Simulated scan of single mutants.
Amino acid sequence: MFNRLFGFNRRAFSSLSEQEILALAISSEEDDARIYRAYADGLADDYPHTAAMFEEMAAEEDRHRAWLIELYRKRFGERIPLIRREHVRGYYQRRPDWLVRPLGLENVRAQAALMEEEAQRFYAHAAQRTEDAATRKLLGDLAAAEQRHEALAGHLAEKHLEGDAGRQEERTERRQFILTYVQPGLAGLMDGSVSTLAPIFAAAFATGDTWQTFLVGLAASLGAGISMGFTEVASDDGVISGRGSPLKRGLTTGIMTALGGLGHALPYLIPDFWTATTIAIAIVFLELWAIAFIQNRYMETPWSRAIFQVVLGGALVFAAGMLIGNA
């Protein structure tokens, strides 16, 4: 375990021969092509045009590998030693595609740009380590090619993501974001902000005790968060509805529910009752307007309807809590 952790079983890059450097380059190009094809497979259903872009980038890596193998055969014969990134200390590592999931558009594009930048640095450094003119020329050409890959990615993006195709993929990604995060988070925030108003302010006006009010608010917020989170997870596995991972939706809903209630419970840590209550009311006002804004911004709910549903509804719940507390 310690050998793997501290790299004792790895060779330093500076100790590699030209034959080993070429073998490492061949395996690296093979791995990069495999990663790009995995990206393409993972994106094919929702983002077919971006998937085609990564298929072309994988084909480009295949061409690089073919050039390297041809040069290797001329210099060292048919037997290529198995040298991979994990065998070399200080060499850049690749994240497997299953660690990059979910494969959002910006996520994989940024990862591809990083891959090309790291490959360019490797070839530039390897070229300086070689004395054979043909090898040095090929490695230098590959360094230049990798440097151009960012421009190639941009060209491929323009080719595959222009016009309606690009807009459709952006709409698909935005829809998935809304279904997985915005909708569950909004439901949680609404429940936490509105449903806890009555018990918190009823406790506040009934007892006049800020600490007891805070405990009621804490219990109501955490209890609602746990309940809403589990309800969201159990309600839909996301397979048919396309709403995404139930765990992500459940966590989003639970956290936002708890935060919605804690927002106007935390002021009651202030010992002075009226100061705490005034701040809590101000926070409630901000929470309700934030909910209305999110509805308008992401759910395309008209301002008039959002204000009526959220602000007026929250005001009625607050009034009910205050009246009950003063009864």
Rank of each mutant, 00 (worst) to 15 (best):
residue 11 R to L: 10
residue 14 S to F: 00
residue 16 L to K: 03
residue 16 L to W: 07
residue 18 E to A: 09
residue 21 I to P: 01
residue 21 I to G: 02
residue 24 L to G: 03
residue 26 I to C: 07
residue 27 S to E: 12
residue 29 E to S: 04
residue 30 E to L: 03
residue 31 D to T: 15
residue 34 R to P: 02
residue 37 R to G: 01
residue 39 Y to F: 11
residue 39 Y to E: 07
residue 52 A to E: 00
residue 55 E to D: 15
residue 55 E to L: 15
residue 56 E to C: 15
residue 57 M to G: 05
residue 60 E to N: 11
residue 64 H to T: 09
residue 66 A to S: 13
residue 68 L to T: 03
residue 68 L to Y: 03
residue 74 K to F: 11
residue 75 R to L: 11
residue 78 E to Q: 08
residue 78 E to F: 09
residue 79 R to I: 09
residue 83 I to L: 14
residue 85 R to P: 05
residue 88 V to C: 13
residue 107 N to M: 06
residue 107 N to W: 00
residue 109 R to C: 09
residue 109 R to Y: 05
residue 111 Q to F: 09
residue 112 A to M: 03
residue 129 R to N: 10
residue 141 D to M: 11
residue 144 A to M: 09
residue 146 E to R: 05
residue 148 R to H: 14
residue 153 A to C: 08
residue 160 H to R: 02
residue 162 E to R: 13
residue 167 R to G: 08
residue 169 E to S: 14
residue 169 E to W: 11
residue 172 T to V: 04
residue 172 T to P: 02
residue 176 Q to T: 08
residue 178 I to Y: 07
residue 184 P to L: 05
residue 185 G to F: 08
residue 186 L to D: 02
residue 187 A to V: 13
residue 190 M to Y: 14
residue 203 A to R: 05
residue 206 A to R: 10
residue 214 F to Q: 04
residue 222 L to E: 10
residue 228 M to G: 00
residue 229 G to E: 13
residue 232 E to C: 05
residue 237 D to I: 10
residue 238 G to V: 12
residue 239 V to S: 13
residue 246 P to L: 12
residue 249 R to T: 13
residue 260 G to Y: 01
residue 262 L to M: 15
residue 264 H to V: 03
residue 270 I to N: 15
residue 271 P to D: 14
residue 277 T to Y: 03
residue 279 I to H: 14
residue 280 A to T: 12
residue 280 A to S: 15
residue 290 A to S: 12
residue 298 Y to E: 04
residue 299 M to E: 11
residue 301 T to I: 04
residue 307 I to H: 14
residue 317 V to Y: 05
residue 317 V to H: 04
residue 319 A to S: 12
residue 324 I to W: 09
